[in-house]
């Protein structure tokens, strides 16, 4: 091997590393959707309960969850049909989706189990369960995917701890922490994908094996 070939090989390694590091589309618009819903939903629930309108809480919850499922489902379906980036790491994106699903399913199960299995009043702590799960989910995504998710999960963790003390204010504490954490992390991820899409075609499509150095 000569020096010129060695230089080309090093350049090839660097280019492939850079392309593979960046090319992931984890569809974090789901985070933005659910973050926005939680940002409004949780404080509204605390306000309704404080105003003695507890019966409206069920209606509000059904609208929030139903709306979130519809919007998230539609966006996921649309992007599934027309992938936004070529040559992406679909394996990593799928694993991120599975990880998120595990936390959400756990939350749903605990939402029913905690009130049923705990002593009276256990249902008051369902928001705390979600706060903790959101925190762990974001922090885990931060470890596996991108660092900003980790830092966006910390406020949810702190809010959960605070809400254990101020139970009646839990919605006002958890809603903004969880909601904004998801919105900020999701927005950063979506802007990263948008930036990758805007790059000139040959930056994304360049044949790393035959591109001129």
């Amino acid at each position: 091997m000569d020096r010129e070939q060695a230089a080309r090989d090093l350049e090839l390694i660097g280019r492939v590393l850079e392309q593979t590091r960046r090319r992931v589309d984890p569809q974090m618009f789901h985070m933005i959707v659910w973050g926005t819903i939680v940002l409004v939903w949780y404080p509204l629930m605390s306000w309704l309960q404080a105003a003695g309108r507890g019966r409206a809480c069920l209606t509000v919850s059904l609208v929030a969850i139903g709306g979130g499922v519809l919007i998230s489902g539609f966006l996921g379906w649309r992007h599934g049909r027309h992938p936004r980036l070529a040559a992406t790491n679909t394996l990593l994106a799928r694993r991120l989706g599975q990880l998120t699903a595990i936390f959400i399913v756990t939350g749903v199960v605990l939402s029913f189990a905690v009130p049923m299995l705990s002593p009276s009043g256990g249902g008051r702590y369902v928001p705390h369960v979600w706060g903790l799960l959101y925190a762990l989910m974001l922090m885990t995504l931060g470890v596996i995917y991108s660092r900003e998710f980790f830092f966006c999960g910390l406020p949810s963790l702190l809010a959960t701890l605070a809400a254990l003390h101020w139970v009646d204010q839990s919605g006002y504490l958890l809603g903004p922490a969880m909601g904004l954490g998801c919105i900020v992390a999701g927005t950063i991820a979506e802007r990263r994908v948008a930036r990758l899409r805007r790059e000139p075609a040959d930056a994304a499509d360049v044949d790393p094996l035959h591109a001129e150095g």
């Binding site: 090989d9 992931v24 992406t88 094996l209 035959h210």
Partner: peptide, 29 residues
């Protein structure tokens, strides 16, 4: 690893595992 194709494949797997189709598209093979 003196083959550039194999070098590129190995480099592409450093950060994450990858599926066959992704490697094929990324490396234009």
């Amino acid at each position: 690893l003196t083959s550039r194709v194999r070098l590129a494949i190995v480099s592409a797997l450093v950060h994450h595992d990858a599926e066959f189709t992704q490697l094929k598209e990324l490396l234009r093979l």
